[in-house]
């Protein structure tokens, strides 16, 4: 069950995504799927944190990941080339039809991606960067504006699709 706003947003996000898809398929039809939005078959989502592995404690994960409790598996390993530590997470119970869940506006995989980004920021910077409320003038209701608003709602999570 989602709000109607959620539904509008996810419909608009898919419409917005189709613009991105169009642009990408103009380059190469096989690239019609936006690169940032693809999911690896294994289900693992991964970020590299510029910290020693000993600083990334799987027993005391930052709050955004800790909230998932035992709904996620966590893997930590050193990144090659002195790039820090690879932190990977995976939902134990992965929804099979992500397209269907996107229709309803809820996408646990995308929520996990967003939590992973916030966890990285908490470890590297100590707080999560905020942008709202940003000062702005009158928002005239244009189709483009609504689309973009929907885009920016999903943008912290994963690639726009």
């Amino acid at each position: 069950m989602t709000t109607s706003i959620g539904n509008v947003a996810s419909v608009a996000a898919r419409a917005g995504g189709s613009v991105v898809r169009q642009v990408r398929s103009a380059i190469d039809p096989s690239a019609a799927r936006p690169a940032g939005a693809g999911q690896p078959a294994s289900g693992w989502l991964s970020v590299t944190v510029f910290r020693e592995p000993s600083d990334v404690d799987t027993a005391a994960l930052p709050a955004p990941l800790a909230e998932f409790g035992d709904r996620i598996e966590v893997r930590v390993r050193p990144a090659p080339g002195g790039k820090g530590t690879e932190l990977a997470v995976r939902l134990r119970d992965r929804p099979s039809g992500t397209a269907a869940s996107r229709l309803t506006g809820s996408d646990p995989q995308a929520d996990l991606r967003s939590a992973l980004r916030r966890a990285k920021q908490l470890i590297e910077v100590g707080e999560v960067l905020a942008v709202d409320p940003a000062p702005h003038g009158r928002r005239t209701a244009t189709p483009g504006g609504a689309l973009l608003e929907a885009w920016t709602k999903v943008a912290p999570k994963a690639g726009v699709r």
């Binding site: 940032g36 910077v125 885009w151 920016t152 999903v154 943008a155």
Partner: peptide, 12 residues
Amino acid sequence: DNGNPNPGITEA
């Protein structure tokens, strides 16, 4: 990596 609160758009 941590300067853009909307990374999904440029990722796509």
